[in-house]
Amino acid sequence: MKRCITSALGVAGLLALFGHAALAQATATDPSAVANAYVNAPHNWQMWFPTAGSPMMAKIDWLMKFVLWIMTGVVGFVALLLAYVFIRFRAGRNKVPSTVTHNTLIEVIWIVVPTLLLAVIVIPSINLIYYEADTANPYMTINVTGHQWYWEYSYPGVAGGLDYTSYMIPDNQIQPGEIRRLSVDHPMVVPAGKKIKFVISSADVLHSFYLPSLGMQRYAIPGTNLTQWTIIPKVGTYYGQCNQICGVGHDAMPIEIKAVPLADYLNWVKYAQANYQ
């Protein structure tokens, strides 16, 4: 990590010193390294969602808490009823069982109240569905293609074209600052704060493009294009993994996305065109 931050500082320093002429220099070092300053990765004993890396994830996090509080209430209520019944109506304390087998009012209540609870859940939930589907007016589009067992990223809007593959770094080649099973050789790099649309497909079997910290997931299906979108406000590195069984390398095709300032993104495009393809 430290090494990467130093190099990012180095790039900035060079830019400051030599101005425009230094751009050529800058492309020799990876301009996306600026995203190493903030890493959004899972941590041990984690008990909740990742820190929201996108507005979509923030909405998912909110709805999850909303639904889970309601459901915790339901489970807690049932647990209380059970506990009361066990204490009050155990054979030792209640020797003669009642013979009541019907009570229309209570039967109506336990149909109506759950229905109302579901109605309360459904309204924000349906809003979220449409929000997640709104891929209109993106700043740029990236085509994502799943392969056995790597991802291919293609930037159709980039002058000169950019299409490269992204492989997991094998366990025995992990460098300090990299995360085993999550870091890749060529991450996807996007401009921070811009709406990115992903067009997701597959070249062979099913895969799933899954970014938990961004709240994104779509299957990669051969012969079909599915779309997703994100905005990543904070410069940093975000991780995901393939989430649909795709053969023996299913656990070895992670996703790494680096969100960088627009200027760094433009530099990175040149760098990637020179080094990734």
Partner: peptide, 21 residues
């Protein structure tokens, strides 16, 4: 908890962050 943290199913090996649970 593993699911909330984002661990996919059908993985024989996983990132070290999922080790505890």
């Amino acid at each position: 908890f593993l699911g909330l943290a984002g661990m996919p199913r059908r993985y024989p090996d996983y990132a070290d962050a999922f080790a505890g649970w």
